[in-house]
Design a protein around this nucleic acid. Structure first.
Lengths: 159, 159
DNA sequence: AGAATTTCGTTTACAAGGAAACAATTTTCT
DNA sequence: AGAAAATTGTTTCCTTGTAAACGAAATTCT
């Protein structure tokens, strides 16, 4: 008895066509970021460290007295949201807000002693992790990728 | 009468140090994505086109009958959220959901005639825009950046 | 000086997205 | 076959982030 077998070969979960989408910067950025953040939480989530929040503390650490609007603009956090972050840091005793004499609209941010301690405690693991993100690329490729991203975003380590 | 002028030279909004943060992939991805999306809405927002939503329609367009979980996984959309998107597309008459014979847990997605029309109407401008995103880089750099991102994310145009 | 505009942070009201528990189905393991 | 485990989509609740209108302060323009 002969049998005809229809082999559809969906390869099941196999291939899913993305077409031009896979060449779209916006999409690649999104996937890249989720990739990185997922790993981040897997590895550092336990220490209560969130990338966005740590970034704010880090920038205040490097720029004591900075106005919160300037941090928001640089880190691309909306001002409305920055208000919440900063207030919450203040409640946690990590950040100090002072209204400067010169311009009493703005608010200057500084780390408290406790905030400094937090940054110093976690900077190492944060940036060590940032380093390890690039493991899936060769060192050359990683350096190239970062350089291209910096050019694209207009960000440089210096400033 | 002589005057002493204290010049602090804050350069005002000038420089804000980011230190190692500017070399962190997660941060660069985030800024890159926001950069791209802001421009996207400036240019295409009027046509009611949202990048995430269009991406879903596009993938269904290229892979008729795909299960929604597969789309979610590939596009890195959480399944809970994909449910909402797909239901909303169904309400709008853009997508058809059918329960396949083989496995009645899953749901197969297909574009309706109206959904196909939408994708065909907007694919051009969507990907034209995606192309224009790279304007701030040279063509070589853009190609390199995309290739590196594809390698990093494990995504390739083919599949 | 005084009115109009701009800047800065805040508030409120909402949208986007995620975590966890769940029901229905299928698969695996005895 | 039948119990245990895994898969798939859904629901509910919650967190994160945004938009828009606002008040206070500073700046600009007569």
């Amino acid at each position: 008895m002969s049998r005809v077998q229809l082999v559809v070969d969906r390869s099941d979960e196999a291939e899913l066509r993305l077409g031009q989408l896979a060449g779209s910067l916006g999409f690649l950025f999104r996937v890249g970021q989720l990739e990185v953040f997922d790993n981040f939480f897997d590895q550092l989530g336990k220490s209560g460290l969130k990338p966005g929040e740590f970034s704010v503390l880090w920038v205040v650490h490097l720029n004591p007295g900075v106005r919160q609007g300037a941090v928001a603009e640089k880190l691309r956090i909306k001002r409305a949201h920055m208000t919440k972050l900063v207030r919450s840091f203040e409640e946690d005793g990590l950040i100090e807000r002072t209204i400067p004499e010169g311009d009493r609209r703005g608010i200057e941010l500084r780390l408290t002693r406790s905030g400094s301690a937090f940054v110093e405690d976690h900077a190492q693991e944060f940036f060590d992790y940032a380093q390890s993100e690039t493991d899936r690329l060769s060192p050359d490729e990683a350096a190239q990728l970062i350089a291209l991203l910096q050019k694209f975003t207009g960000l440089t380590p210096g400033s």
